[in-house]
Nucleic acid binder design. Structure first.
Lengths: 204, 204
DNA sequence: TATTTGTTGACCGATTCGGTCGATGGTTGT
DNA sequence: ACAACCATCGACCGAATCGGTCAACAAATA
């Protein structure tokens, strides 16, 4: 473990990314250490040299992700905009900041939340409800909904945005790094379009 | 192969579903025949008895899916509504009709389109561009965009709807059969909300 | 040069892979 | 009643792959 942490930052990131990708795509059991090593362009032996066992590697990734979630993403929690769409934009922007460095962060997290392999299920239990509470409080706490037109059903808007965000996020890993910013702008354009058409005129 | 086709309809569906699920979730190589058999509650031997080889099973599924795509889904192609949102609703409704019987149809198709295993890549090439052309023509052909408010950027709307539809579809397989209709209604509600706020007043 | 450190490919036993096959038990025709 | 048939399964096959180890080589440090 300390073998890995004493690596140069970007080599760490490369390896982490490969591991996040392979685990995220295949789940714990079907992800093989060889696949991860190949993806990271190192030998299988090195993975064991760095992390000890496959399980240790997986749990390191879980721990790393939870630290990212509590760190950069919650640091803005206090002064989150009360405006719904503004918050949506800030949130995705922050999220994309992470995804730019770790494109498979999200896929791994999703896969992890539905992971059921007995070899790691115990250790995951702790992190799971943690991520759940985080997600919900983050989204709606202290939100100002008063700017919406009165005939707009907020429940519907909320669900719609969840779908949108999911569809959007799901395709992030397909974008090349240089196109990512444009892709994010496209999302913001959509958010703006909604704001413009769903808010009362006096708030535009 | 004829062994399988002479099975009662619903047993065929059960097995097909299990195969679509396992292949869709794991890709061709990592999907194991044992997993499929377990999911379908039959013995591994039966899978081989029905389909011959793993490859034959996979290609059967591909062929089956392409037939579904050319059959039920294109039968409405001629009299598709020219109204954008109306078409969106009709399309998802049809799509859901399929997904009610084959919940993993979509996941399998997505996975298939990015399948790269050399053992099947040749045979897939044919189906791939087929699915691509289908998707695009289906979506936009002969559409009436004149009802939108003039300051609405259509490109943005289109992209947004793609994200929405993807996020929505992605969660269909999580819904229980009895809740599926409600879930579809939620999507239609969202479509209605958009239509109501993005169309010129005279078209409401 | 001597020594440590990073890295690898060959290798281990165990498991799982796709696929086969003989045994079993139910169904059908006679 | 028997025989012919056929669906179904569990045991089994050789080959591949699994997680993990280790001796040996290369590079850097001293």
């Amino acid at each position: 473990m300390e073998n890995f942490l004493s690596l140069p930052e970007d080599k760490q990131r490369t390896i982490r990314n490969s591991a996040l990708k392979v685990f995220g795509e295949n789940g714990y059991k079907k992800a093989s250490v060889k696949d991860i090593a190949d993806e990271a362009d190192i030998s299988k032996s090195m993975v064991f040299h760095y992390f000890g066992t496959k399980k240790d590697l997986y749990l390191y990734l879980v721990d790393y992700c939870s630290k990212v979630l509590t760190g950069p993403l919650t640091s803005i929690q206090k002064d989150l905009p009360r405006d719904y769409f503004e918050r949506m934009k800030v949130a995705t922007e922050k999220q994309m900041g992470v995804l730019k460095d770790e494109p498979f962060f999200l896929k791994f997290l999703t896969s992890m939340l539905s992971e059921s392999d007995p070899e790691i299920s115990e250790e995951l239990q702790t992190y799971r409800n943690y991520a759940a509470t985080f997600q919900s409080s983050y989204a709606l706490d202290d939100m100002d909904f008063s700017k919406f037109k009165e005939d707009v059903d907020l429940k519907v808007v909320l669900r719609m945005m969840v779908w949108m965000a999911e569809g959007f996020s799901r395709n992030v890993s397909l974008e090349s790094e240089e196109d990512l910013d444009k892709y994010i702008d496209q999302f913001n354009e959509a958010v703006e379009l909604l704001r413009f058409n769903l808010y009362k005129e006096e708030y535009l």
